[in-house]
Amino acid sequence: MNEIELLNWARGPGLAYATAIMFFGLSIRVIEILSLGRPEELAEVRDSGVRDGWLMILKRSLPEVRHWKYITASYIFHIGLLVVIFFFIPHTHLFRDVFGIFWGGWPNYIIDFFTVLSIAGMLYTLVARFYDPARRILSKMSDYLAWLVTFLPLVTGYMAFHRLGLDYTTMLAVHILSVELLMIAIPISKLTHVVTFTMARWYTGSNQGRRGVRS
């Protein structure tokens, strides 16, 4: 298999399989969660909780300034990752191709900046995982693997764009394959949070809203 065949496999069957596995898995995960049901609230509520449910989904994305030392790196990493995934022009074409929606991308130097930021943020979170006692005690092998499969696409993408390491064709193929690995990992690891965080926040937020608790 030469590099073009590898790239074509990654862009073709590889991408299709990974997409299928990711959506298949996420679909299962979400239904598994929903089907467990939520007990009916019998206490007299102060509010339906709908507003606070939505607010929670949005507001928990704001930085918890109180703990800035703790969250800055991962906060930056998340922002950077989202920018890179959704606003790098070549990526936007992939989304247009798959979902039929197009929102235009941002200039490369901005993407480049966010990529570096993301990589730095991720490296810091890895170091913190070793050195922060709470994170270290929580971390299992699966946490480090999840870190790795998230890190690889960032680094390989950066290298491909800057023509570093392997030749561009191979690097691009490796990048796409690493993304496919990430896509497969999403439904079977803690990376499921990319979808279920909205559910978690909804449940907590709406529950708090019913009780009149400000989040």
Partner: peptide, 12 residues
Amino acid sequence: APIAAYFSSCTS
């Protein structure tokens, strides 16, 4: 469901 969503979402 909330508990399942919580465990699914925890990133340690």
